[in-house]
Simulated scan of single mutants.
Amino acid sequence: MKKKIFVKIILILSLIIISWFVYSKYFKEDENLLFKPLNPTTKNEGEAIYNSNIIKDINYSSKDLKGNEYILVAKKGEIDLDDSDIIFLTNVTAYIKLVKNSELIVINSDYGKYNTINYDTIFSKNVKIDYVDNIITGDYLDFSMMKNLLIISRNVVYKNLENTMRADVIELDTITKDTKIFMYNSSEQVNVTNIK
């Protein structure tokens, strides 16, 4: 009788061990597959999510009610994970085509931050504005299409055929061409050099 009980216990334990082995080998792995990404781009899941937000060769175009056109081109963009309306750009060129004067304003910079809803764009590092015979360079540019306003600041140099000017800030209304040039410190003066 003891021998029969002992054999039953061994059989039950063997059955439990075999069941656990089969479960862990086949079923537990399949369960984990349900939570893996279908087409991961990298082994690191964080990188896969990060890479999915990068866009190459960006081209945005928009027009206001007056017919002025704003075209934005960039080599690369990255969608902000906290706000999908914001795109961080690299190697940026913007074209502002004004209907009133048929003039083209070209803006170049290393980096940009573009709002896809209101088209506001912040340009940074090696900013250059080129329009007609004028070139303005600086470190930071804030452009608002709705306000028709360009504000360039930090190490600003304005050059035309006759003058070179250094200032802290230049504000330019893209429609009226009204320009404000000033220094942050009111005791400092804008430096103007005549080229001729």
Rank of each mutant, 00 (worst) to 15 (best):
I86W: 14
V73I: 04
N53F: 06
V99M: 15
D83A: 08
E47M: 15
N91M: 11
L104Q: 04
G67C: 01
L104C: 02
S52Q: 00
I49S: 09
L72W: 06
A74T: 04
N108G: 02
Y60E: 11
L65S: 15
I55C: 06
L65P: 09
Y50D: 12
K100H: 10
V92C: 02
Y70W: 01
K63L: 10
D80N: 12
F88C: 02
E45M: 08
Y60K: 08
N108W: 03
G67E: 03
I79W: 06
E69P: 06
I58C: 02
I96M: 06
I86R: 14
I96P: 00
E78R: 04
D85E: 10
S84V: 07
S62F: 13
S62E: 15
K75S: 12
N101S: 13
N53T: 11
G46N: 14
S84Y: 00
V73N: 05
Y50P: 10
D64N: 15
N101H: 12
N68T: 10
D83Y: 11
Y50C: 07
D57M: 05
N108T: 02
S102G: 13
D80H: 05
L72M: 13
I55G: 08
Y95R: 02
V106N: 01
V73C: 00
I107P: 03
I107A: 00
S52V: 02
S84E: 13
G77H: 02
I55H: 05
I71R: 13
F88P: 05
I71P: 06
D64V: 08
I58H: 02
I107Y: 10
G77W: 02
S84M: 09
K76D: 03
D82L: 06
I96E: 05
T90Q: 11
Y111E: 05
G77R: 08
G77V: 01
A74V: 05
E103Q: 12
V73Q: 04
Y70T: 01
L89T: 03
D110H: 11
K97P: 04
E69N: 12
D82K: 03
G46I: 11
K97W: 00
L98N: 07
I105T: 09
S102D: 14
G46F: 13
I71H: 12
N91T: 15
I107H: 03
V92T: 09
K66R: 09
K66C: 09
L72T: 09
T90S: 12
D110T: 05
L104S: 02
